[in-house]
Simulated assay, not measured.
Amino acid sequence: MNNPTLLFDYQGELPECPTWDADTQTLYWTDILKKQIHGYTLRTGKQAVFHFPEEVGCFALRERGGFIVAMRTGIWLTDEHGNLQQKVCDNPNNPQLARFNDGGTDWLGRFYAGTYWGPRDYNGALLCRVDAMLKTTVLQCDILGANGLAFSADQKWMYTSDTPNHVIYRAPLDENGRSGPRQVWKTFPPGNGRPDGAAMDSEGCYWSALFDGWRIARFSPQGDVLQEYSLPVRCPTMVCFGGENMKTLFITTTRENMTVEEIQERPLSGAIFTLDVAVSGVAKAKFKESE
């Protein structure tokens, strides 16, 4: 069994939303607390950093170039340099209490963005979607921390997780990508990791970063654990597939809220790891806008 290895010498505060660009062989991710999106081109080792005025919880690449970014107060379109071009919508939550968190695109190129309810006093977060007409629709509420967005290879299921509530959901999808009622798919006992960001492979299996769990795991379509891979850090945040054959798993991790002593003990916290796997992943579509 392969072990995760470092991508390169980098440690962020809260790296999230790893996103692979097959056209340029570049991995992008956001460092939420630093208000940045990073890019690392594997072939050349070239690095790029895009700066934003607010935390970018999640983002996607646009077909037209640039990004769609979910910042604390709203969702914006940017150019290829990260410059804000057009505001899509305000944050449907109260931005003082809930910032955007996990998100991505479905196979139709629609952008999904979930929020994290900061006070943690009730399930006040939500999941919304932006379509090609730049219309925003709230899809789910009753969430504490939106995470784990992924779509099955057969386009029949949408998966999400609520990390603080230790649960993964899935919702059925029709032929037009409309979701039905979400169902509890898997729950996790306290103390053994919580389901954070995720990705799907071509065999219909769900890969989850287990926050506070020191590992990532691959689950069958029935929710059974098929493989687990240990990490040298406590808190992985998300995974995505990439590489030339889509058989490289990229893993983001965090050092948020860690003590100086823990960071000294686990200095790779906040690093990005790679893992060669035997099965290819489902590629993320770029955000598609109407002509």
Rank of each mutant, 00 (worst) to 15 (best):
K46A: 15
F211G: 00
A113C: 14
G82Q: 02
P164A: 08
S290T: 03
V260L: 11
Q140A: 09
Y206W: 11
G114K: 04
F287S: 02
Q86I: 08
M238T: 15
A132D: 11
E80W: 02
W107K: 06
G242M: 05
Q36G: 07
Y40S: 06
G66E: 01
N245K: 13
E13G: 01
P221E: 07
L127I: 14
E265T: 15
N91I: 00
A153C: 10
V233E: 04
Y10T: 06
D276R: 12
K87G: 05
G57K: 06
E289I: 10
G281S: 12
R234H: 10
Q47G: 00
K156F: 07
P195T: 10
T163P: 06
G197M: 07
I272N: 03
S280L: 02
E203G: 13
S161D: 10
R110L: 09
G204M: 12
I75R: 00
V167N: 04
Q86W: 07
N101F: 10
M200R: 02
C128V: 06
N83R: 12
R170H: 14
Y112T: 00
F50S: 06
H81P: 03
V184C: 10
F67Q: 01
G39T: 02
M158P: 03
L173N: 05
G65Y: 07
M200L: 15
M71V: 09
G74V: 10
K186E: 08
D121F: 15
L226T: 05
L126W: 00
T30Q: 04
Q25K: 08
P190D: 13
D154E: 13
I168G: 04
F273K: 01
S230K: 14
G242Y: 06
Y122A: 13
C58M: 09
T137V: 14
Q47D: 08
E55H: 14
G193F: 03
A125D: 07
H38D: 08
A48V: 09
A283K: 13
T248S: 07
D79P: 10
W76L: 05
P267Q: 14
N245T: 06
D90W: 13
L134P: 01
N257H: 14
H81Y: 01
R72V: 12
N94A: 11
L6D: 11
T136C: 15
G39V: 08
T163N: 08
V239G: 08
W214L: 08
L249Q: 07
T44H: 03
D174R: 09
R43D: 00
L27W: 01
N176W: 05
L33K: 08
R72T: 15
F211S: 05
M1L: 12
D162N: 09
H51A: 14
L27A: 05
I251L: 00
A271L: 05
K284S: 15
C17P: 01
L275F: 04
A60F: 09
F219T: 00
E203H: 13
Y229I: 09
E203C: 12
N93I: 01
F250H: 00
G281A: 13
C240M: 12
A217I: 09
S220F: 11
P189L: 09
L275E: 05
M158H: 10
K35M: 10
A153M: 04
P92A: 10
Q11T: 14
G12E: 06
P267S: 14
V225T: 12
T259N: 04
V239Y: 14
V282E: 02
A209M: 07
A146R: 01
R64F: 00
